[in-house]
Design a protein around this nucleic acid. Structure first.
Lengths: 207, 207
DNA sequence: GGCGTCGGTGTAACTGTGTTACAGGCGCCT
DNA sequence: AGGCGCCTGTAACACAGTTACACCGACGCC
């Protein structure tokens, strides 16, 4: 049973597999060792720690995210397209979001897109501090949205729940509003709507 | 050493203390038992589980959050004030945010404020589905922002880091922008700016 | 050839976690 | 007194991350 000697990349690859399939909490050192057909200590030799392993995993996956290109006509639409592209990328790696969040590297997720955003904000005529604020506002909105979204998917049923909380009475006699708030959220729609609204204001000249 | 019999409330209270002081991961059943001067099984008897314990803790703390009142003149400013009040409340209980997030109850954090928001959106003239969308857009923005913010505070130094990433060259010769993006974020300012921008667009008549 | 060093692996243990089976104790009601 | 329900404690189980230590094999050096 001579195995080819274990490499750090091999460890990272099967660790990534485990995480992709069953989530980060399913990645235990022993399971990983079993999967690799080796002993726990070998893993500790190659990657020092569970922490370091997850760090390396995050680094790896973030690096794998492709570059983001803006599409569309006006500056506003192009910025929105960047936001949507980022969201799509993050949603393609659901566990990544959790891991990045747990490690306190949330901003890190956005760095690949920041450059594209700066370009578009410039094209829209914003400069200096105002441009930076616009970029960061969009950045925070997108990443925050993705965090919440991932969260919602994990918690299918809320306990008091919006459903029974919003009847016509509590909604100040606006039955349509009550119905809308009691119903499920349409994340795609809400995301586009929010980003578009935010960007519209940010690009307006004025305050 | 006759102790007064343990009560569920007592357990929850000292559990809340532990979490407040050292974060949720420091709350182990044995530490809690030691703190209470009792045995682990007693805790299990009163609150069934660690899960249930944390659930109860979240419930308790969320219930303790005061009601949110809108302030200010125009509808837009009043909505912004609700958002800021919610953010302030959540930031006053830093660990709560983490716990709520981990338990997938992120929306739950917003329920107390939702009612206030509905009122203000109504006052601004929005009805039905449009009103609901506005409420939810603000809701997602605020909660998302708080999540990111808490995250930033936990991770003082990012590894590639925005600092060395943004020099004048990469910022398309906008030195002021490079400086702004390389510098630290001012969360208060960014938050108010973002919410104000979002709300402004949401309240505009039209699409 | 013998020997030591270094890279890499394996066995078996340590500590600490959540959780539970089980044996009671204490007080109240009948 | 007896019984029962609330409550507590002892001791264990399974599983987690981590590590001390022995070992193996190749390589270089004397």
């Amino acid at each position: 049973m001579a195995r080819a000697p274990l490499t750090r990349d091999e460890v990272l690859a099967t660790a990534a597999d485990l995480v992709k399939q069953h989530g980060p909490e399913a990645l235990t050192m022993r399971k990983l060792a079993a999967e690799l057909g080796t002993a726990v200590t070998s893993i500790y030799w190659h990657v020092g720690n569970r922490e370091s392993l997850l760090d390396a995993l995050v680094e790896r996956t973030v690096a794998d995210l492709g570059a983001i290109r803006a599409r569309g006509a006006g500056p506003a639409e192009r910025i929105v397209s960047v936001a949507r592209a980022l969201r799509r990328q993050l949603r393609a790696h659901p566990h990544l979001v959790a891991m990045v969040h747990e490690r306190g590297l949330t901003e890190r997720m956005f760095l690949p897109a920041q450059r594209a955003l700066v370009h578009e904000v410039h094209a829209a005529g914003l400069r200096g501090a105002r441009a930076a604020e616009a970029v960061r506002a969009v950045q925070f909105q997108v990443v925050g949205f993705v965090l919440i979204e991932r969260n919602r998917e994990r918690a299918p049923v809320q306990r008091p729940g919006e459903e029974e909380l919003w009847d016509a009475a509590t909604a100040e006699d606006d039955a349509a509003l009550a119905r809308a708030l009691a119903g499920p959220v349409d994340p795609d729609r809400l995301f586009t709507l929010s980003v578009r609204a935010l960007v519209k204001s940010l690009l307006e000249p004025g305050t």
